[in-house]
């Protein structure tokens, strides 16, 4: 288990190939506990792939991925499941289970992993929904929700197990700026309240500026720049500067 000073997430020389293409190329990254990191980069630079490595959905061809000091690449299914319960993930399109209600989606991780009685689980799920502004939407099916609502429901589900590490894949993609801003605010609130480690993949610079303590810029599977928003604005690499200035991008 993590001790004081152990990074929440650490990637060591991770390489991942899809066919001949190196999606991650000897990538190393350390995310200290409690830190909010935004991973930037153009589409197809391996941002989502990096997230999936952290949560163990993908395994690196080379290198290792440590979560709170444990190498998830070497874990068996049960241990991996235990590690995953410490993490929450918000998917790009929310990835709500469309065969069950919104409320059940949120309650799902609780039902699977907590010993709480069903009624309490329901209460917790309703509270989580209320936290993301979806009070009263419990019995709705995911298909009945708008994109932003779905994303908030997805966030509620990701938070259900009170994760130490929250991963978010493009939380503001496909949303109008207002909705997008709400999501950003929710993430910030969350971090302030729980002190969770936050890793957010985005190409929405305004979001990144709001959320990120630290920004990481990915290009062709490598980290080309890392630092605060201000540092990246001053980056010697033209690509990074160019990206940072494309304010409305998303």
């Amino acid at each position: 288990m993590a001790t004081e000073g152990t990074p929440a997430v650490e990637l060591r020389h991770v390489t991942k190939r899809f066919g001949d293409r190196r999606v991650l190329d000897d990538l190393s990254l350390v995310v200290p506990a409690g830190r909010a990191v935004c991973v930037l980069g153009r589409s197809g630079t391996g941002k989502s792939v990096m997230l999936k490595h952290i949560i163990g959905l993908m395994r690196p061809d080379e290198g290792s991925v440590l979560v709170e000091g444990e190498d998830v690449t070497a874990l068996g299914p049960r241990e991996l499941a235990r590690v995953r319960q410490r993490m929450g993930m918000l998917f790009q399109h929310a990835a709500l289970f469309d065969s069950i209600t919104v409320g059940e989606n949120v309650a799902f991780p609780l039902r699977r992993h907590s010993k709480l009685p069903p009624r309490e689980i329901r209460e917790r799920a309703e509270a989580l929904l209320a936290d993301v502004g979806l009070a009263g939407e419990y019995e709705k099916m995911p298909a009945e929700l708008s994109g932003g609502m779905r994303k908030r429901a997805g966030l509620a589900r990701a938070l259900a197990l009170e994760p130490a590490i929250l991963l978010a894949d493009e939380p503001s993609t496909g949303l109008d700026p207002v909705t997008s801003g709400e999501i950003d605010r929710l993430l910030v609130e969350l971090r302030d309240r729980t002190g969770a480690t936050l890793i957010v993949v985005t190409h929405n610079i305004p979001s990144a500026r709001v959320i990120g303590d630290e920004l990481v810029f990915l290009h062709e599977g490598r980290i080309v720049a890392q630092g605060t928003a201000g540092e990246l604005d001053q980056s010697p690499i033209p690509l990074v500067r160019q990206f940072m200035q494309a304010e409305g991008a998303g």
């Binding site: 999936k52 949560i55 163990g56 959905l57 991996l80 499941a81 235990r82 995953r84 319960q85 993490m87 929450g88 993930m89 998917f91 790009q92 399109h93 990835a95 709500l96 289970f97 469309d98 799902f108 991780p109 699977r112 992993h113 997805g154 589900r157 990701a158 259900a160 197990l161 991963l167």
Partner: peptide, 10 residues
């Protein structure tokens, strides 16, 4: 990504 989501909730 619902399958991934399932995996993600362990």
């Amino acid at each position: 990504e619902q399958i991934d989501a399932l995996e993600a909730v362990a």
